[in-house]
């Protein structure tokens, strides 16, 4: 199985077409609600429509029970937004995953992000049994085999329509061991991944180094890299991300900027302080987008602004990425 991305369309999703046409792509992210409330999806979607090209639907992110990503993906399709359905290996074995993939394709989903999934101990059901029948890489392999070889994971032929997804994966350039990260990305490419969305990037020089190493391994011609970015909401959030989120690297410079943003505002004026932080967080995010855009091999950005979807239009605007390209139907 080759990991090469020709310019020929294999799935025809908007995301694939834009990337292959050479556009600088913008994807967003929508966190489904912890309820059966459809209106939450409609509201969040309204912020993202027209400012991003496709929207990730998280799959019970941080192992907290949320509305299922397939259902939300279908709602987005109905709203005229292209979903990137996320699929983790934590809650489903290969039988359940393949079954979901058949259903998702039938519902019109065309982009799939393959993940291992956050460990259940981080979520609201730490007593749950996890699955991890597959990992992200063997999941990618399976999805690719279903599409290109028309075979289930067991090797049996798929008689009839096979599920055809534009296959994505994640990469964390800041996790350890740093030297191995580009090679692990190489394994995902080998397994058949076609686009990558990275962990949140704040340390741009380190990301640049990661990209250089990926380039040295010849990976950048084989996979589209969307740099993960996101706005910092407050000084506390900046500090929390810097110290308490595994695999996150937030340079002191940004923590200082968040602190300075509210320097001249009195403690009591909570509203003004919040607004100042939000302005600064959005500004930093837009700057980072401009910086990563200059790095060879970066094909787009993935804006993660979960539970703050309303910030996305402003970020995209400030980063100079509007209007988004239109495709002929």
């Amino acid at each position: 199985m080759s990991g090469d991305n020709g310019k020929e369309l294999v799935v025809g999703s908007k995301l694939e077409r834009l990337l292959k046409a050479g556009h600088f792509v913008v994807t967003g992210e929508l966190g489904p609600p912890q309820s059966a409330d459809r209106s939450v999806i409609e509201k969040k979607a309204s912020y993202l429509r027209d400012v991003v090209d496709a929207v990730n639907i998280t799959d019970n992110q941080t192992a907290v029970v949320r509305m299922c990503s397939m259902a939300v993906a279908k709602m987005l399709i109905d709203l005229g937004i292209e979903p990137i359905m996320q699929m983790t290996c934590r809650d489903r074995n290969r039988i359940a995953i393949q079954s979901d993939l058949l259903g998702a394709y039938a519902l019109g989903v065309r982009n799939l992000l393959c993940l291992t999934g956050d460990h259940q101990s981080f979520g609201n059901h730490p007593q749950a049994k996890n699955v991890h029948d597959l990992d992200s890489i063997t999941l990618i392999q399976m999805v690719r085999q279903m599409r290109d070889a028309k075979k289930f994971q067991c090797g049996e032929e798929i008689k009839g329509q096979e599920p055809r997804f534009f296959i994505g994966g994640a990469a964390n350039p800041f996790a350890d061991p740093f030297e191995f990260r580009p090679y692990r990305l190489g394994k995902k490419v080998k397994a058949g991944v076609e686009f990558i969305q990275t962990q949140l990037i704040f340390n741009v020089p380190k990301f640049r180094e990661f990209m250089k190493r990926c380039g040295d391994l010849g990976l950048l011609d084989k996979v589209y890299i969307l740099a993960g970015v996101g706005p910092i909401k407050s000084l506390a959030a900046a500090r929390y991300m810097a110290t308490s989120v595994p695999g996150m690297d937030v340079p002191q410079e940004y923590i200082d900027r968040m602190a300075n943003a509210v320097k001249s505002i009195p403690q009591e004026d909570k509203k003004a302080r919040r607004e100042a932080w939000e302005r600064e967080g959005i500004k930093i995010c837009a700057e980072i987008i401009q910086q990563v855009r200059e790095i060879p091999g970066v094909a787009g950005v993935h804006i993660m602004s979960i539970e703050w979807e309303s910030a996305v239009p402003e970020i995209v605007q400030q980063a100079g990425l509007l209007p988004r390209p239109k495709l002929d139907a």
């Binding site: 290996c89 934590r90 291992t116 999934g117 956050d118 460990h119 996890n130 991890h132 990992d135 992200s136 890489i137 063997t138 994640a170 990469a171 964390n172 996790a175 350890d176 061991p177 191995f180 692990r184 394994k187 962990q199 595994p246 695999g247």
Partner: peptide, 11 residues
Amino acid sequence: KSLMNGPCGGS
């Protein structure tokens, strides 16, 4: 997570 192809991003 009994990964066959680790380490994951949480290392």
